[in-house]
Write a protein that binds this DNA or RNA. Structure first.
Length: 494
RNA sequence: GGGGGCGUAGCUCAGCUGGUUAGAGCGCUGCCCUGUCACGGCAGAGGUCGCGGGUUCGAGUCCCGUCGCUCCCGCCA
């Protein structure tokens, strides 16, 4: 930190200390803390004046109940002001909750009364006061009798958004939108999700990797890559860490994961796509088939959901009206062909050749399949496996006895595709042949093919959409709601 | 990229078959109200009806173009 800034901070700290000392309620307490109180040695006035006060720690709203009859400092935002003839109420919101502040008003309003009358919602304030219990107060049966209030940063009157503003407008003013507790909860859950994922990986001996997002050539198709000026040539933003996590297999890492950004240049206008999103990637060596990958993924997800349910289940239920719980294992598995038979038998009609053997399921079919599986097995999750080579990349391993089918899978949750995974082809000659059969420009991916020339373990893995998981988990209808800052074809700001 | 929908006050919306000064709720401003808690009461300010062109005596309303947003499909995580 620059010395200049340090100086400013120190000065601000002294100002704050003086302000607090000047309050009749706080002054005594601060003096006690400084050593002059009943528990400390008696000190003369001069020494007490020189001694720096021990600052009153900021108390979180959620902890107020353990500070009854104490004077505390609170810092947060003005949630509401109810300015009456004889009584003023301010509802203060901080990261942990809402609290009522109260101040009486005499015939001649005090300076503090005037300050409160002029408060605008969402102003950032620091207040001090005595915490008292009062059963009249609906907010937790307690309130803070105001001794002081200072505005750290006023909010202009008339906020540009309200909680029910259109999502696009809320994203324009995302920092205001994020102040709302229900939106904050989304990101608290996201933190828990990522932590639980890492917990499980670390228990299982995985290594976390960070792969480059700047690449010299396409990693897969090339059609959906963003180009970037890179000195005298063109670079591409990684649309997947796919090749690099496989490189970690060739590098002997055994089991790896990465949580990181990926970039897709598709002009996709749906509720579940963005041009930059957080991908969760896993790759595991020494597997026998894609079944091993699925077996890992379902246990890993069950752990995540269990932890989220324990920690946030009640709040998610009361805030979003959805239940999160540990899923039953194993998840049902169904081949793509059998899934189509099931849909056909159920009378489902897909558009765009959705039920043709060579096509993937279209979104309505995925939703219908999830509904049928849920009804028949009680599982909200379903692995769809054995996709035809026509809809899978060249590096997916084929079934030895059915060369038109791959050892691959998708994971659907409540009708949305969360994951694509597969066993990878690790035999160089076979991989080369499959690349040529798919018309891949071999010289562009030669560096990747080389991974398999000097002894590569059989391996497989999956890619997983973090925001799609959150969207389904929290009953949100778009990934934009659960993305800190959404990026789409028409959205580069804020 | 293909198809549908929307764009009216700071916010959310209403404005029927084209017809005088374009409305509501919330918010905002002022006044009133001894404990509010979605506080309440009274008054007020606030709108080039996304933009451009056209049809018409007359356009928020109809037509064309354009921009923005949105949903579905394609693509995928």
């Amino acid at each position: 930190m620059a010395p200049r800034r340090m100086g400013r901070l120190r000065r601000a700290g002294r100002r704050r200390a003086r302000r607090l000392l000047s309050h009749p309620l706080l002054g005594a307490r601060l003096a006690r803390r400084a050593g002059g109180g009943p528990a400390g040695r008696p000190v003369d006035g001069d020494r007490a004046a020189i001694a720096l006060p021990v600052p009153v720690a900021r108390v979180a709203v959620a902890d107020l109940k353990s500070h009854l009859e104490e004077t505390v400092e609170l810092r947060g935002w003005v949630h509401a002001v109810r300015d009456q003839k004889r009584m003023q109420f301010v509802v203060l919101r901080d990261e942990t909750g809402l609290a009522q502040l109260i101040l009486g008003k005499q015939e001649q309003p005090s300076e503090l009364n005037e300050t409160i009358s002029a408060l605008t919602p969402e102003s950032a304030v620091t207040v001090a006061g005595l915490v008292v219990a009062d059963e009249r107060v609906k907010l937790g049966g307690l309130e803070v009798q105001l001794a002081s209030l200072s505005v750290d940063s006023p909010a202009e009157p008339e906020l540009p958004i309200t909680p029910d503003s259109a999502l696009d407008k809320r994203i324009d003013w995302r920092y205001l939108d994020l102040r709302r507790p229900d939106r904050r909860l989304i990101f608290e859950v996201q933190s828990t999700v990522e932590h639980a994922m890492r917990e499980h990986w670390r228990e299982q001996g995985f290594i976390e990797i960070h792969t480059p997002k700047l690449m010299g050539s396409a990693s897969e198709s090339g059609a959906e890559l963003f180009k970037v000026d890179y000195f005298e040539r063109t670079a591409y933003l990684a649309q997947s860490p796919q090749f690099y996590k496989q490189m970690a297999m060739a590098g002997g890492f055994g089991k790896v994961f990465e949580i990181g950004p990926v970039f897709r240049a598709n002009p996709s206008f749906t509720s579940r796509h963005d041009t930059e999103f957080t991908s969760v990637d896993v790759e595991i060596s020494w597997i026998d088939s894609h079944e091993d990958v699925m077996a890992f993924e379902e246990r890993w997800l069950a752990h995540v959901l269990t932890v989220v349910a324990e920690r946030h289940g009640e709040q998610i239920s009361s805030t979003f009206g959805v239940e999160v719980g540990a899923p039953k294992l194993p998840f049902p598995r169904i081949t793509l062909a059998a899934a189509k038979d099931l849909l056909e038998a159920g009378g489902h009609e897909a558009g765009g050749g959705g039920l043709d053997p060579d096509h993937d399921l279209d979104p309505p079919s995925e939703r219908a399949l999830s509904a049928i599986v849920a009804e028949q097995t009680g599982s909200e999750f379903v692995f769809v496996c054995d996709y035809p080579t026509s809809v899978r990349p060249f590096y997916h391993m084929r079934h030895p006895d059915q060369p038109t089918l791959t050892r691959s899978f998708d994971l659907l949750w409540r009708g949305i595709e969360l994951t694509t995974g597969a066993q990878r082809e690790h035999r160089y000659e076979q991989l080369l042949a499959q690349a040529r059969a798919k018309n891949v420009e071999v010289d562009q991916v030669q560096y990747y093919l080389d991974f398999f020339r000097y002894g590569a373990p059989p391996h497989g893995g999956f890619g997983f959409g973090l925001t799609r998981l959150l969207m389904q988990m929290l009953g949100q209808d778009t990934v934009r709601e659960v993305t800190f800052l959404y990026r789409g074809p028409n959205r580069l700001e804020p």
